[in-house]
Amino acid sequence: MAILHAEGIEKRYGARTVGPVSFMLAAGETGLVLGGSGSGKSTLLDLIHGTRRASAGAAVLHIGGWRRDLFNLSVPELVAARRAAIGYCTQFLPAIPGRTGLDLARQVAPSVAAEAVFERLALPPRIWNLPASSWSGGEKQRLNLALAALRRPPLLLLDEPFAALDRALHPVLRSFLTDLAEEGTALLIALHHAEDGLPAARTLVSLNQPAKG
């Protein structure tokens, strides 16, 4: 059963167009959105998350008995759906200045042992209690992923999760994501190169040329 059903999603900015894009993603499945810089990968994730408004199409989220087009929700409904069901790991860490990584994790999921997740992502314990704003780019990216994963959303959107990481850390991230998928999370990952993807991943969308009209 599809957890996310995208039907003809399209975004037009003046003369530029991303899409139309259609696909299905099931629970526990990993789907890839491939494309070069400027092809509209991040835009597509933004549309599904509701960070941007789509010009056309539908993104139907189906969880339990709940089945709604995310593009047709009121803002309060979208906020509720996001809080309950959708994680979004962008390339930016939206954190209140001065908060430590562990603070942020406890804030997101007070009842889950964040330490274990930090360890699985190879975040060194000496930085856990330092302000997240002082962490390196690759550390922030893993923190961002930890924060998104700690909430255990049924659908997790990931924008270039490998981008700020050196090669040595790629296997760490790959096994972390594989575990999430095996636990039932549906992953939708925007990537530059398919080879960064996971073994079980399926390419759902190829946005090969830069978006144009």
Binding site: D46, H49, G50, T51, R52, R53, V75, L78, V79, R82, P94
Partner: peptide, 11 residues
């Protein structure tokens, strides 16, 4: 206008 903060800033 009504929006989640990320949408308000992006769009």
């Amino acid at each position: 206008e009504e929006a989640p903060p990320d949408r308000l800033i992006a769009d």
